[in-house]
Structures are given as C-alpha cells and as structure tokens.
Amino acid sequence: MNLFDTTQLGLQSAISGAGMRQATIAGNISNANTPGYQRKDVDFHTTLRAALASDAPMEAVKTAAFSPATATTGPMRADGNGVDIDVESATMAANALEYETLVSVARGRTDVLRSAMGVA
C-alpha cells in the first residue's frame, strides 16, 4: 500500500515536466534574436501518456524522464533563427496555466490525505 497513488505521482511528474518546459521556452525567448538558433520544446505529455498506459504504470511514471528536443521545422528568418515570439508567448501562457492547474489538483489531493490523517 502506497501513500501516493499513480495519479499523484503522475501529477508530480507532470509538474516537473511543465517546469522544464517553462525553462525551455524561456531559453527560446531569450534567443529570439540569436542567428541560427532553433526552438526547443519538451514533449512531456507523450512520455507521460506512454508511462501511464504501460503495464506497470506506477514504476513507469516514477522513472519517466523528460528532455528538451530541438524542433526540426527549420529556420523562419534569413538569419537562420527559428523562434516565433508570438508562438512562444502563447505556448508559455498555456504552459503556465497548465502548471498552475496541475499544482492546484496536486494540492487538492494532498489536502484530502491531510484531513484523512487529521492534520488539517
């Protein structure tokens, strides 16, 4: 019997993925004027979905690791830069909302645990 179930571990993993994605988007925006820079992104959704669908979801979610991947869409501008600042801003806003949603859900679930333990 585990204190934290697969959903809670999945939430933790998703929070760290969204945090990594935020740092990656920050890198894209800071390099919006760097010649030859290609945008990077973290696809934590696919990794996590595969982990949750596997035979031993709890172990798979615990060991799920994310890493930033460089986009292969090619340069957008004459100087070889592939960052569209509008796309990055929109992605960052969406990612921040997702992160806050994940944190709220994780918080709600730990609150349930706390009241079960009689601490809250």
Partner: peptide, 27 residues
C-alpha cells in the same frame, strides 16, 4: 525597437516563472 520588445518578452517570462513558483509554494 527590436531590443526593447525582446527585453519586454524576457520580463514577461520572468514574471510568469515567478508566478508559477509562488503557486508551487502553496502546496
């Protein structure tokens, strides 16, 4: 203009990250 817009974009990133971080502290 390009430098000024780039600066603003980075400030926005910083604000958003800060907001996300304080949300985490709520846990």
């Amino acid at each position: 203009i390009s430098a000024s817009r780039g600066y603003e974009a980075n400030v926005t990133v910083m604000q958003t990250s800060k907001q996300m971080f304080s949300k985490t502290l709520e846990i």
